[in-house]
């Protein structure tokens, strides 16, 4: 039982990061019906920018650990949001009227571009965050050692997700985003500036991805230029699992995927863990073809 709970916390911590990245996929998909394959690389960029800012600005001299993290997170999110918006402007907007698979190829091209740009700028070696930024204490509950950071990480993910959910549900901009997701044409007729809505989506999604990158860097320490591809794929899986286009779905999908992976590794086989996760995904999709929380869309006639 102890082992089970330990693995559950392991899975939830990883799942929180998947969920945070999955939100970016889901938001973009919701409005544009585009699978943004470059999203994983925005996550990588977030991790690298975080490292640059951390080592060049010397924030640790003025602020305590949590102050540093908050200031850093805001800066990284802002910068990655700009990259995201630029990506939309350059690579996706010209393709908005064409077949949606065309934009997927553009996204894949952008992904290759970003990944190699990071490699050329920062070098191919692993980069490592300084070790002493965050306190490394563990909490002792139920006879388990759970690192405090893990809990904070999970908590941060959940807070961000709830914040986003409220933003989408309660604010005027959020309502506009939802309207554009349902029907862009109708939203335009109602006086919504759809271009601006899409830009906002491309600011928020990448910002969350960048934040996730920073979190991974701060907690795990090691980052490399190819990591976005793997995280991106996992997060995309999570978004689909929960029902793509649906924000609570991305949260549930991400956390669930993390837990499935941890449990698969713990009780079946580590080497097969990803295969197990995909098997579960396929079974879920056979039973619920639009994911766990996805709406059943009636075919248009």
């Amino acid at each position: 039982m102890e082992l089970f709970i330990q693995q559950l916390t392991n899975g939830l911590a990883v799942g929180g990061i998947y969920a945070l990245i999955a939100l970016g996929y889901t938001m973009v998909y919701g409005v544009l019906k585009l699978i943004n394959f470059a999203h994983g690389d925005l996550f990588t960029i977030g991790a690298y920018l975080g490292l640059t800012l951390l080592t060049t600005l010397g924030l640790t001299n003025y602020l305590g650990p949590f102050g540093v993290v908050i200031v850093l997170a805001l800066m990284v999110m802002g910068l990655v949001a700009i990259v995201g918006a630029a990506l939309e402007r350059v690579a996706y907007r010209p393709l908005r009227q064409s077949h949606r698979l065309s934009a997927v190829v553009s996204a894949l091209g952008a992904s290759i571009f970003f990944q190699n740009a990071v490699m050329l700028i920062y070098g191919a070696r692993y980069k490592v965050y300084p070790h002493d930024i965050l306190p490394r204490t563990a909490i002792h509950i139920f006879g388990l050692d759970i690192p405090l950071i893990r809990l904070l990480m999970l908590l941060t993910s959940i807070v961000m997700m709830i914040g986003l959910y409220l933003f989408i549900q309660r604010t005027k901009i959020g309502t506009a985003i939802r309207a554009a997701a349902i029907d862009q044409g109708a939203a335009k007729l109602m006086g919504i500036n759809v271009d601006r809505v899409i830009m906002i989506v491309f600011l928020i999604g990448p910002a969350l991805g960048g934040a996730a990158g920073l979190m991974v860097g701060l907690y795990y320490g090691q980052i490399n230029f190819t990591m976005g591809w793997l995280y991106g794929l996992k997060a995309f899986t999570a978004a689909i699992l929960g029902g793509i286009g649906n924000i609570p779905g991305a949260m549930v999908g991400g956390l669930l995927l993390g837990v499935i992976e941890a449990m698969g590794a713990a009780y079946i086989s580590i080497a097969w863990k990803d295969a197990i996760a995909f098997c579960v995904l396929i079974i879920i999709l056979i039973v619920r073809p639009t994911g766990l929380l996805g709406e059943r869309v009636a075919e248009k006639i």
């Binding site: 690579a91 091209g109 571009f113 490699m119 050329l120």
Partner: peptide
């Protein structure tokens, strides 16, 4: 080492001009 970077940019450009 920059060859894949150029390739990625080329793909994006291609799709933009021939959607």
């Amino acid at each position: 080492t920059a060859r894949m970077l150029i390739f990625g940019a080329f793909m994006v450009a291609m799709m933009i001009f021939r959607t």
